[in-house]
Design a protein around this nucleic acid. Structure first.
Length: 137
DNA sequence: GCCAACGTTGGC
DNA sequence: GCCAACGTTGGC
């Protein structure tokens, strides 16, 4: 099983929006970046990911699970773009802020720190465990 | 709200 | 195929 991080602006698609979808889940659509798309192609059903709020909040706020592997993005006719479906698993009791992540030397290599603009990122098992711990899970 | 960093586009 | 110009993202 692999771990990932999904980034979203709360104004566009928030954790609450994701929660409201429940087990039905939702397409992670609108990604128009090749790197991010390639990571989504690597995802398998059952993979877990962090749900990260960018901009104002800049925190990991929830855990999601991949429920459908990469398929064409229904929001565009452009066949280059694909997306996966994800569903909310649970909230992170104590959201982990970007500041906390940056303050932890063990997390210095997280893609979130090194390439903050990438909207879909891989997370290592070590990073996953550390962030979960910081978040009270 | 600004600006740096990055990715994409298009002219040559 | 290179590179300048442009648009977008996201931290500060």
């Amino acid at each position: 099983m692999q771990y990932w991080l999904f980034k979203s602006e709360p104004n566009t698609w928030s954790w609450q929006n994701q929660l409201d979808k429940g087990d039905a889940g939702e397409e992670w659509d609108g990604v128009r970046n090749y790197q991010a798309r390639n990571f989504m192609r690597d995802m398998k059903v059952g993979d877990r990911g962090f749900f990260y709020h960018s901009m104002k909040e800049k925190s990991v706020v929830g855990i999601v699970e991949v429920m459908a592997e990469a398929h064409p993005d229904s929001t565009t006719d452009d066949t280059r773009w694909e997306c996966v479906d994800i569903k909310a698993v649970k909230a992170v009791p104590a959201p982990v802020s970007l500041d906390q992540i940056k303050a932890d030397p063990r997390l210095a290599d997280m893609v979130l720190v090194k390439n903050s603009r990438l909207s879909v990122q891989p997370v290592t098992a070590e990073e996953w465990a550390i962030v979960c711990q910081l978040g009270g899970l």
